[in-house]
Design a protein around this nucleic acid. Structure first.
Lengths: 196, 196
DNA sequence: CTCTAGTTGCTAGCAGTGCTAGAAATCATG
DNA sequence: CATGATTTCTAGCACTGCTAGCAACTAGAG
């Protein structure tokens, strides 16, 4: 093997790895788009394969199974949520809890399928533990940051869990048409006034 | 047709209707048991038919489709929840919000599959409207009753929705292993102290 | 007791699901 | 061009929810 051949081999390999990574992401994006457009029930391996213009087995060369694809969608979604909450935390004017609560609920409302994958479906992503994905811990950290200025002498992490639970409850019950849509803002005011 | 024949005909018919109703309930109970034992994924029409010792098409002579069975399970579950909350509301000693919150979370923890059918899965039961099932309205009424003594000048129904959302959020996030199990009681204390 | 009308429940099958073994096609290299 | 390795596809399995159409049973009349 000549040195130029070896050199070529390396670049070809890296190009292949890059293409593989692109296709990996393509599958994730396609799954998310399909879910957002028609719901997770419409995300079948056949339709997903058709959307990325490959055959079904290609999906399984990238992911162990269908759940692994959804899990990846969920984790990337957590990254986006963390970003959005970070921006809300940086806003001047409104109180941090207020801004973050609004941002959280807006996220859940605008991307219901994504939110579903992240926090409703059973996806066995490690959550509390140390080996939870970074995106997830980042999102929770933003919630902690939002609550911190009003925590007072209350335990910060516990207070954050309760804050998160309330937002999550409102998000899911609203999406399931179990709350009166007209009173959305009233509920938000009430949550925030209770938190002091 | 003699008068005795007519009499017999009526009783035979009523006996059949009774047997049909019993089988109807048998299917609902079997679905719920199977779901509670192995999760809703295990509730297939084949396994359900086997459990009630009939063939699959019998299920479809009682229910329009599989979702209709789950919906019935969910509605009856709401009835049970309403009962349990009613008892909690009647308890002396603890504050009503405290007793009801504990009862609610205990219900969700002990019957996770049932709770899932009631409030997590998309089941298109009419919720807010007037033609919502009585069981459902009864359960919500108990939540209202629990919140009423601490409502003060806040809108009762909105406050109840927020209270419910928080409980629902805690219930689902706990079940999905997204909250620290060790701090369950702390969270509850925090919720109740915030509600005044 | 027998025959008939009507009901009830079953067998067998369809189209679709997640997933995979093994054949086919493609590619980099001598 | 030929070869060996890699990549991708075809075809299939066991399962899903659901249903058409046949078989078995029952109730009542003669």
């Amino acid at each position: 093997m000549s040195s130029s051949a070896r050199f070529r081999a390396v670049t070809i390999q890296s190009r292949r790895e890059r293409e593989r990574a692109e296709r990996h992401q393509l599958i994730i994006d396609a799954a998310r788009e399909l879910a957002e457009a028609e719901g997770w029930d419409a995300v079948t391996t056949r339709r997903l394969a058709e959307k990325v213009e490959y055959s079904q087995p290609v999906l399984y060369s990238h992911f162990k199974n269908k759940d692994a694809i959804i899990r990846e969608v969920a984790i990337q979604g957590c990254g986006e949520l963390a970003e959005k909450l970070h921006e809300a935390n940086a806003l001047q004017g409104k109180s941090r809890p207020h801004a973050v609560a609004e941002a959280y609920l807006e996220f859940a409302r605008e991307r219901p399928a994504l939110y579903d994958a992240m926090f409703v479906r059973e996806v066995d992503i490690p959550f509390g533990t140390a080996d939870a994905p970074a995106e997830l811990r980042a999102a929770f950290a933003e919630l902690v940051a939002a609550v911190e200025p009003v925590a007072g002498d209350r335990d910060l992490e516990t207070l954050t869990e309760v804050f998160w639970s309330t937002l999550h409850g409102i998000a899911t019950l609203t999406h399931g048409k179990r709350l009166r849509p007209s009173h959305h803002l009233d509920r938000l005011d009430l949550v925030l006034s209770q938190g002091r």
